[in-house]
Measured scan of single mutants.
Amino acid sequence: KKVTINGVEIKFNNPEEAVKFALELAKRLNLRIEFHGDQIKIE
Rank of each mutant, 00 (worst) to 15 (best):
F12A: 01
P15H: 13
I33T: 01
F21E: 01
E34G: 04
I42H: 02
R32F: 05
K2L: 13
G37R: 07
L23N: 04
F12M: 04
E34Q: 09
E17W: 13
L23D: 01
N14P: 08
K27N: 07
A26V: 06
F12E: 00
I5V: 09
E17S: 08
L25M: 09
I10E: 01
V19W: 14
H36M: 12
R32G: 02
N6C: 15
K2M: 13
E24R: 10
D38L: 07
F12T: 03
G7E: 03
V8W: 12
K27G: 08
F12S: 02
H36Y: 12
L23P: 00
I10C: 15
N13K: 13
E17P: 04
I10Q: 02
Q39P: 03
H36I: 14
P15I: 13
L29S: 02
K2T: 15
R28W: 12
K20G: 03
F21V: 03
G7F: 07
V19M: 14
E43Y: 15
K11M: 14
T4D: 02
E9A: 08
P15C: 15
F35K: 03
E34C: 14
G37E: 10
V19R: 10
L25V: 06
E16I: 11
K20P: 02
E43W: 15
E43S: 14
L23W: 07
L25I: 10
D38A: 05
G7Q: 04
N6P: 02
I40T: 01
I42Q: 00
L31C: 13
L29K: 02
A22N: 00
E16T: 09
R28D: 02
K27H: 09
K11P: 06
K2V: 15
L25P: 00
E24A: 13
G7D: 04
H36N: 11
E16C: 15
K20N: 05
R32C: 13
K41W: 13
L25D: 00
D38C: 15
E9V: 14
E17L: 10
N6T: 04
R28S: 07
K1P: 12
A18Q: 02
N30T: 05
F21C: 15
R28A: 08
A18T: 04
I42P: 00
K41A: 07
L25E: 02
I33Q: 00
I33M: 04
D38V: 06
K27A: 12
T4R: 05
N14R: 08
Q39I: 14
V3F: 06
A18W: 13
E24I: 09
Q39N: 13
N30F: 10
P15T: 12
V19Q: 05
E16K: 09
E17F: 07
F35A: 03
N6H: 09
I5S: 01
I42N: 03
A22K: 00
V3W: 07
I40K: 01
V8M: 10
H36D: 12
E24C: 15
E34F: 12
E9N: 05
L29R: 01
V3H: 03
E34K: 08
I42R: 01
K27F: 11
K2F: 13
N6V: 10
E24Y: 12
N6G: 10
E24Q: 10
K41D: 04
K20W: 15
V19P: 00
I10M: 08
T4L: 14
K20S: 06
P15M: 14
I33A: 02
E9M: 11
T4F: 15
L25T: 03
E34L: 09
K2W: 13
E24M: 12
G7L: 08
L29G: 04
R28G: 04
N14T: 14
I40E: 01
D38K: 05
F35N: 01
I40Y: 02
L31K: 00
L23G: 01
F35Y: 08
I10D: 00
N6Y: 12
K2S: 13
A22E: 00
D38S: 07
V3G: 03
I10P: 00
K27S: 10
E43K: 11
L29Y: 11
L31F: 06
E16D: 10
A22G: 02
D38T: 07
V19L: 14
L25R: 00
D38M: 07
G37K: 09
L31W: 10
I5P: 03
V19H: 06
T4K: 07
E34Y: 12
V19K: 07
L31E: 00
G7A: 04
N14A: 06
Q39H: 13
F21T: 02
K11A: 11
E43H: 13
I40N: 01
R28E: 05
I10R: 03
E17V: 06
K1Q: 10
I5N: 01
V8Y: 13
